[in-house]
Design a binder for these strands. Structure first.
Lengths: 146, 146
DNA sequence: TAAATATAATTGATATATCAATTACATAGC
DNA sequence: GCTATGTAATTGATATATCAATTATATTTA
């Protein structure tokens, strides 16, 4: 049996788009901020907006599993962007807090991210964005419901 | 400065869609074939259709870098799906060949992949697929041209 | 309340991602 | 024919991805 090569499918297009965006965004971040990855930046943004998030919750927001999140937070603690401490309300969890150094990153990150989004979405209409969201939503639903 | 949280952006939608598709596809592959990842399967499909591809070329087709491809092929050679041998026309390259065991995988893989694509794209029109491709193409171009 | 079950996080093992440096070979230009 | 430059692949270091097993704590239920 023959199947169309992966390179001819829409999945290839989706994959290459998100990978190019990530490369582009990472490059622009690295120009201005040392030692921060996109995903680490997203962790900071989420924690900033929702203090008290557990590792598990952060993991879901950035599409990682718990094991990856444990290690990712280890490295962010090692780099002094985050502080991890005992949570006495529920000793299974930790309190994850943004340090001064982490807050410094948060001062510089937003304009870069905004710029990344704007330039990568240049020339794309609101309507197109809505279509994109709807169609991708259908695919995702098909994958999770079956 | 405030930015919209990543979870509210189209990039989050794109990312989650491709990740769900990958999970879904991997799960269906694993039900029938032991010890093959989606990416390893894609390498087999590409090599089957284009014998003589170099590691570098395969890497581009599946969006990996050379270092990852070296290691990926190492493991596929270790699992006896591929055979690597000297290429006397250009001794910087290798000849990468599919073994009998690799061909066995290639017998079983295509119907699963076809089924994965069909079910995940169920209810999506040809027109929507075209739109998807066009819009994502614009984003990708914005990211590579800037 | 003791035992069963559930949850959050960690750990080990293995694979992959990424960058920079290196090796080995090929080719162009002098 | 030599040197400079280019190219394919590897390697080392570190981070992340993934699965399964484990630890520590909470919650439910008999």
């Amino acid at each position: 049996m023959n199947v169309t090569l992966p390179s001819e499918t829409i999945f290839h297009v989706i994959e290459s788009t998100i990978k190019e965006y990530r490369k582009f965004a990472q490059k622009n971040i690295s120009k201005k901020i040392q030692d921060i990855t996109i995903d680490q930046g997203m962790v900071l943004l989420f924690l900033n907006d929702h203090p008290g998030l557990t590792q598990k919750e952060i993991a879901e927001l950035v599409f990682k599993d718990n094991a990856s999140m444990t290690r990712m937070i280890n490295t962010m603690v090692g780099k002094k962007h985050l502080k991890r401490s005992i949570n006495n309300e529920d000793r299974r969890r930790y309190k994850i807090e943004i340090t001064t150094k982490g807050k410094e990153v948060l001062k510089n990150l937003p304009p870069i991210i905004q710029q990344n989004r704007n330039s990568s979405l240049k020339g794309i209409t609101k309507n197109e964005l809505e279509q994109l969201e709807v169609i991708l939503g259908k695919i995702r639903t098909n994958c999770t419901k079956n």
